[in-house]
Design a protein around this nucleic acid. Structure first.
Length: 516
DNA sequence: ACTGTAATAT
DNA sequence: GATATTACAG
């Protein structure tokens, strides 16, 4: 039902026109309705016009739309009420339209959930770029909003991706970092500014779109976490124009992210944004399903004998080490906010060179949204360990665990992950082992401290806007160009020549990487 | 030759 | 703020 696709004309870059965006226009004023509809059609939108909200709802139930534009003031049901209903039933973005330019009406609409507010009379220009709302909503994230003017800051749709990791108040542990390098003298005898007019970068910046990042994640998964070094990732990603430096930079950031997440215990509201760039663009449930399918063997726990033994883990139970040459032990490190179980604060920043305790960052699988789905409540680990007495949310127990994959030694690419409720009690959840439902997600999330309603809402929104393919009805899935602006990066043809046989580069790219 | 890390530039 | 570049060290 809500899984229809939005196809963006490849040529939109020049023509600024969009095809296949279905818009429902609702206005009791026939004239206004006709004008707006006509204007929308000039921009090549597919438009259906109805005169009252009830008809609108009926129409929505019969036909797929990407966007609803409604007048605010209407009899029987006003635009706000309609928006609520549309939101609830169809999860479509609603754009409010009204001659009322009062702040009150605008704020009410936007706060009520409208994606945008347009004051009548609307101009063609106002309508030109509305497709971006549809696309943004559909993808649960922002797109490159280019020409839309006056985007209200409160828009719930626009740029929701960019507000990732807002606070990030975790920067405290790092200031005392003895600033070893780059301190006094840049030895390299290039003191003065002989900057060779580096104003123009040879290559523009790579935009790490979700898809490109997903490819990056897939490459890591493909290679194996501990072997995932820039050069190798680059090979596997197989993206034309992408440089090792690009990958290294991104990998650096990615690791920082992982570290942060691991340190924070994977569950805080602000620290783990479901919309992080490092979260896969897939909906959480789908991610999880995928993960389960891809790594069924990983859904077991290893329970360490004691706490604080991470640094002395022997080879048979060591966490995967993907800090390849610096002795960093990677593994999920559950924190209770202060102490990191399995290592300790002192050793966490230890930069020594001996075999002593090392800190590290937890590694997640490429679809690290999984961490957000971890169920850590009471009973979750009942199968594997004795439960404490806590009857609260149950994190106490979790703090005593150091779960990661049971095959950590067999496979170099072992990935630590938490177990889900579904995984444990497959028969109790929707009767299907592989079925991760909303309830499942909600259940898991709700057991995590510091997750507010907003987070849940976000999750639901994302889930809704990104229906798994299996739930899409009769809509063929084609690669979606999330940012069709530029298309310079191309996937290289699969070169099956060299030593990549066992791990051939990814093929069949499903994205359009871009430069900026 | 390559990597990770961090500082710094764009 | 995200990404690139650079320096440095291993």
């Amino acid at each position: 039902m809500a899984g229809e696709r939005v196809r963006v004309d490849q040529s939109f870059k020049n023509k600024t026109s969009v095809v296949d965006i279905h818009i429902l226009v609702v206005d009791d004023d026939t004239t206004s309705l006709a004008i707006v509809s006509a204007m929308l059609r000039t921009w090549k939108y597919d438009v259906v016009a109805v005169r009252n909200p009830l008809d609108a709802l009926a129409t929505l139930r019969m036909q797929k739309f990407d966007l609803v534009i409604t007048d605010l003031h209407m009899p029987v049901m006003n635009g706000l009420e309609l928006q609520k209903q549309v939101e609830e039933e169809f999860k479509l973005p609603v754009i409010m339209m009204s001659a009322d330019d009062g702040e009150n009406a605008m704020l009410k609409s936007l706060e009520g959930g409208a994606a945008f507010y347009m004051v009548k009379p609307v101009s063609p220009e106002d309508l030109k770029n509305l497709w971006q709302y549809a696309v943004a909503a559909k993808r649960g994230k922002s797109v490159a909003i280019e020409d839309v003017k006056n985007i209200p800051a409160k828009s719930s749709v626009v740029s929701c991706e960019n507000k990732q990791s807002a606070a990030s108040s975790v920067n405290q542990e790092k200031q005392d970092k003895k600033d070893s390098k780059r301190k006094g003298a840049p030895k390299k005898g290039k003191e003065d500014g002989n900057q060779k007019s580096r104003g123009a970068r040879k290559r523009p910046k790579v935009v790490w779109t979700t898809s490109l990042h997903n490819r990056f994640l897939e490459a890591i998964k493909h290679i194996g976490l501990d072997k995932a070094v820039p050069k190798r990732i680059l090979e596997i990603m197989n993206v034309r124009g992408l440089t090792r430096e690009n990958v290294a930079s991104h990998l650096q950031k990615y690791r920082l992210f992982l570290k942060k997440v691991a340190e924070r215990g994977l569950y805080t509201s602000k620290g783990l944004s479901m919309r992080s760039n490092f979260a896969s663009g897939l909906p959480p449930s789908l991610i999880f399903k995928n993960f389960q399918q891809n790594y069924p063997q990983f859904f077991k726990f290893y329970i360490p004998e004691t706490k604080n033994n991470m640094g002395s883990l022997n080879s048979s139970n060591a966490a995967p080490n993907f800090g390849n040459n610096n002795g960093v032990n990677a593994g999920i490190q559950i924190t209770n906010g202060r102490e990191i179980i399995g290592t300790n604060e002192k050793s966490f920043n230890d930069n020594g060179t001996s075999n002593g305790p090392r800190s590290g960052y937890g590694m997640l699988d490429g679809h690290n949204d999984n961490i957000g789905l971890a169920t850590m409540g009471n009973g979750t680990f009942g199968k594997y360990m004795e439960q404490g007495e806590s009857s609260s949310a149950g994190f106490e127990n979790a703090n005593k665990l150091l779960p990661w994959f049971n095959n950590v030694n067999q496979q170099e690419n072992a990935l630590p992950i938490f177990q889900t409720k579904s995984q444990q009690q497959p028969n109790l959840v929707n009767g299907g082992e592989n079925d991760y439902s909303y309830d499942d997600l909600l259940n898991a999330i709700s057991l995590m401290p510091n997750l507010g309603e907003d987070d849940l809402n976000e999750l639901f929104l994302e889930e809704t806007y990104n229906q798994p393919p299996s739930q899409q009805q009769g809509v063929e899935e084609e690669p979606f160009d999330e940012d069709p602006l530029v298309n310079e990066l191309q996937i290289l043809e699969l070169s099956s020549s060299s030593s990549l046989e066992e791990n051939p580069p990814l093929s069949e790219p499903a994205f359009s990487p871009v430069y900026v």
